[in-house]
């Protein structure tokens, strides 16, 4: 990851992602918050491309920038009179130092420990390897995940259905 192109790319994508994540916190109108959220998810997809995880980058765009925001928008639509503003709760004040402390610890751990760096470059072809892994070593979690999705779908429908 040394050639100058990916360094520039990393800093711009990082700025985009963190910037729009902060905008989600700052902006007042909830629908704008969703739009900024989508922007940060697309930034994360860019980061995946940098880490040569091409399947995940495209899956991220498909799911996090295509499906989940639509879910959120439908939820906002179905709650019309609810407060559509993005205001803070009353007991929000102590959160800032807590989050700051958590962030500091994580960053210190990340920087201090020396991870066994690998010397190889990025991956050429990730899709087929993920596919193989999903259906060979991780076939049980794969089935459980499908059952979970089915349960979630049924649950959501039953909760919201007004017969």
């Amino acid at each position: 990851m040394d050639d100058s192109g990916s360094v520039v790319a990393f800093w711009t994508l990082a700025a985009l992602t963190v910037g729009s994540a902060l905008m989600v916190v700052a902006v007042r109108n909830l629908v704008h918050a969703v739009v900024y959220l989508i922007l940060s998810f697309v930034g994360v997809a860019g980061i995946f491309v940098l880490l040569s995880a091409d399947f995940l980058a495209v899956a991220q765009v498909l799911i996090y920038a295509g499906a989940i925001p639509v879910l959120i928008i439908f939820a906002i639509m179905l709650t019309p009179r609810a407060a559509r503003d993005n205001a803070e709760t009353s007991l929000g004040l102590p959160a800032l130092p807590l989050v700051g402390a958590l962030l500091a610890t994580i960053i210190s751990i990340a920087v201090v420990t020396d991870w066994p760096e690998a010397t190889r470059g990025g991956f050429e072809e990730t899709t087929s390897v993920i596919g193989e892994a999903l259906l060979s070593t991780y076939v049980l979690p794969f089935e459980i995940a499908s059952v979970l999705l089915l349960a979630a779908m049924l649950g959501a429908i039953i909760l919201v259905r007004e017969d």
């Binding site: 091409d54 495209v58 899956a59 498909l62 920038a65 295509g66 639509v70 928008i73 899709t127």
Partner: peptide, 20 residues
């Protein structure tokens, strides 16, 4: 890209957000 087809579908799904 070697995820060409998935890329096409992913880009198509952005259209939904823009229409909304």
């Amino acid at each position: 890209l070697n995820v060409g087809v998935l890329f096409v579908i992913a880009i198509g799904s952005i259209n939904t957000i823009v229409v909304f």
